[in-house]
Design a protein around this nucleic acid. Structure first.
Lengths: 189, 189
DNA sequence: TTTTATCTATCTACTGATAGGTAGTTTTTC
DNA sequence: GAAAAACTACCTATCAGTAGATAGATAAAA
């Protein structure tokens, strides 16, 4: 199901993704993208006929990339180790772009996005909570794991917002510490 | 320091705030605002000369409104009661607008906003973490209260994003339950 | 010969912003 | 108290800039 794109299309998506993370869906324009990758705006339309096509493609690619990094949530690694891997994905995202994660940005704008794009964003959050639930499931009752997983993803997303808004990435680190503390106490009980 | 605005200016701010919560700063246009309140776009410029003026005014008004609802964090109410009041502010915001809180939206866009607006958003998060820290300070060491407060605000913000993106407000409720559980265990230890 | 990837040129719609005008109200001055 | 000045809250008209999108041409590659 994973679509492939030409090198130029990927280059366009790279620029668009970085820009979208800072200012949202409307913040990227075909003209800006074009000049950033050295073509004309009509050529961007060749690769992505409409803007929602571009948006959906970016989010979809983003999902695959993270899924690949996280791997299988049901494998033999310890729950805490998996959690730390999840944390590192968020830390990397924040540090490597000086902006919130793509889907945090687009998620906030959900009510305003083309439906195809919003749907893909919704799938992303499904991916993340599912994976986290899977990572905790070995050590917790199913319902507890699900509730805890949703909470973890929420907290991480929010911590990115504060980190960016206050220009202080320690908010993400702080929330990761708190979550780890909480999860450990939950695993013990 | 609290600026006052005419009835019409407030009406403009109401519409702008609601719209900005859904699509961010760029999603509101002077023309749309004007037609929504029954004037011409030039008249909106009369009340708010430049768009950043409007943005800052909205966030500033938002801050005052919430500060008034929360009251004094250092008064005699119990910590847990104060926390529940904080939660209700977030629940109300989510339910009364079907969108994330204004500063969650603008906070994510921080890197893209006019500096005056971004600064005001940053003050909002300062308000919130300060108040929460104040609410917890009677029962916790200072540093612990500060870290916990920042975590609570982060988690609540993120839960709003998931609630909107997944069109399921139980994410906010769930995170509030988890936070309450965590805070109670911290107070006991 | 068809496909791929680009171009030029253009369209309509909308953006924030400004200049300058007009009633109606308030405040100041004589 | 009346006239003059100033202020408030709007208006019309317009500007330059940018948005997404399309039609049709071109050149190279498969």
């Amino acid at each position: 199901m994973k679509k492939t794109y030409s090198a130029k299309a990927n280059e366009i998506m790279d620029v668009a993704e970085a820009h979208m993370r800072k200012g949202g869906f409307d913040a990227v324009s075909f003209r800006d993208l074009a000049s950033a990758v050295g073509v004309k705006s009509a050529s961007v339309h060749y690769h992505f006929p409409q803007k929602p096509d571009l948006g959906q493609a970016i989010v979809s690619r983003y999902r695959s990339r993270i899924a690949e990094t996280l791997g299988d949530a049901a494998d033999s690694r310890a729950s805490i180790a998996k959690l730390k891997l999840l944390f590192s994905v968020y830390s990397t995202a924040l540090n490597s772009g000086d902006s919130v994660c793509l889907c945090c940005m687009l998620g906030a704008e959900s009510r305003y996005l083309p439906t195809d794009v919003a749907a893909e964003v919704s799938l992303f959050f499904g991916d993340m909570t599912d994976w986290t639930r899977g990572a905790l499931q070995a050590d917790l009752p199913k319902a507890r794991a699900a509730a805890l997983a949703a909470h973890i993803i929420s907290a991480l997303q929010g911590a990115m917002v504060l980190s960016v808004a206050l220009d202080d990435n320690s908010h993400l680190t702080n929330t990761q510490k708190m979550l780890l503390r909480f999860v450990k106490s939950e695993l013990e009980s």
